[in-house]
């Protein structure tokens, strides 16, 4: 299983759960990459008959296994950015009682959760489960640009090029962690990048 135990952290950092099948007429499952495994783990024919799966493949081939579950509706897209308009459209049509399941990377879960909340889905109807990459979606506090799939600390902002350190401070509204210039008090003194959890 592609699971990871995140170390304890500060109170703004999201805590991810474990998906469980819930009662309900309508179920929307959004997953990326290894997140597919979390859906497969709870899938039953009865549940799938009432489920819409939106899968963001990110180059993986889990889509075939999800399609084989025979969900009521299935969509596969290459990236979150390519899928987000469709996700918004689906939330627009959501009825009271919709159960939302998010699985995969923090970046995709965070962004899909933001769409769900903005559409008025109560947080109690949203479940999450982290699977796969532990990379983070980071906002540069200086230029405000978002860098996706950050795996190291520090990292280079994809927009302004500053070397940023990775904070655990997280904004649900931005669906991103905060990156802050690491050498602000000693220009040019940038530590060797390491994995975020190393």
């Amino acid at each position: 299983m592609s699971t990871f135990d995140f170390p304890p952290s500060i109170k703004s950092r999201p805590v991810w759960g474990r998906l469980e099948a819930r009662a309900g007429k309508h179920h929307l499952m959004i997953a990326d990459a290894e997140g597919a495994e979390a859906i497969i783990a709870i899938a039953t024919p009865d549940l799938m008959a009432r489920t819409h799966i939106i899968f963001i493949a990110k180059g993986t081939s889990h889509g075939d296994a999800l399609r084989a579950l025979n969900p009521a509706q299935f969509y596969e897209g290459p990236t979150y950015a390519a899928s987000v308009q469709r996700i918004r459209r689906v939330f627009q049509d959501a009825h009271m009682g919709l159960q939302v399941y998010l699985a995969g990377t923090e970046g995709v879960m965070g962004q899909a959760m933001r769409e769900a909340i903005e559409a008025g889905i109560p947080h109690t109807a949203i479940q999450t489960e982290h699977r796969g990459s532990v990379a983070r979606r980071m906002q540069c506090v200086h230029c405000k640009g978002i860098t996706e799939d950050v795996e190291t600390d520090p990292f280079v902002c994809a927009h302004c090029g500053l070397n940023l350190f990775v904070r655990d401070h997280y904004s649900r509204r931005l669906a991103a962690y905060q990156g802050v210039r690491v050498d602000a008090e000693d220009h040019g003194n940038v530590p060797e990048p390491r994995g975020i959890y190393e």
């Binding site: 703004s12 950092r13 401070h169 904004s171």
Partner: peptide
């Protein structure tokens, strides 16, 4: 800009 929308415990998290 980063903290807007957070609750009392979240914006004090650091």
């Amino acid at each position: 800009d980063f903290d807007i929308g957070m609750n009392f415990f979240e914006w004090h998290a650091p």
